[in-house]
């Protein structure tokens, strides 16, 4: 067993887990952060995407023990400082960028990191940004609209 400590959304959390514990299960089962969803467990769907030291990664393809000491941001950390919806969450809400919501945590984290680096994407770039995330409900149109809306909100054009 290994003692693993990570900072999740600004809070230091630890648990003792076997080496085989995936980061996705560590977050959900050991730390109770169930916002991160698990779809395929082989890197294809993107539902489990979290930010590791600020960059999007698949939490189902990492062992918790391997990222001991890291800073993680999950969908729970994409909220506004007052606890309300963050800009990307607000945009998905306004544009109906989700239906069942299963894929949404992966989109929110991916888009949050993308817009930090590309604050003013074109529609084509917005599509490219979400190319690694699968959604079985929405048909993506409203997700693309949400990315563009989130960018506008963040630029202060709310």
């Amino acid at each position: 067993m290994h003692e693993v400590s990570v900072t999740v959304n600004g809070v230091l959390r630890s648990a003792t887990v076997p080496a085989r514990r995936l980061l996705s299960d560590f977050l959900r089962h050991d730390l109770g952060c169930t916002g991160t969803h698990v779809g395929c467990e082989h890197g294809v769907c993107g539902a489990c995407t979290v930010l590791l030291d600020g960059e999007p990664v698949r939490s189902c393809l990492l062992f918790a023990v391997s990222v001991d000491g890291a800073q993680l941001t999950t969908v729970e950390g994409c909220r506004a400082p007052d606890g309300g919806l963050g800009p990307v969450q607000r945009a998905f809400h306004e544009c109906h960028g989700l239906q069942c919501g299963y894929c949404t945590p992966g989109f929110i984290t991916t888009v949050t990191a993308y817009l930090r680096d590309h604050p003013d994407p074109t529609e084509e770039q917005a599509r490219e940004a979400i190319g690694g995330n699968l959604c079985r409900c929405t048909g993506y149109q409203n997700i693309v609209a949400s990315v563009l809306r989130a960018a506008a909100i963040q630029r202060g054009e709310a």
């Binding site: 890197g43 995407t49 590791l52 999007p56 990664v57 698949r58 393809l61 990492l62 690694g132």
Partner: peptide, 8 residues
Amino acid sequence: AHPAIRNR
């Protein structure tokens, strides 16, 4: 792959 996979 996709950026999230290239990051790791």
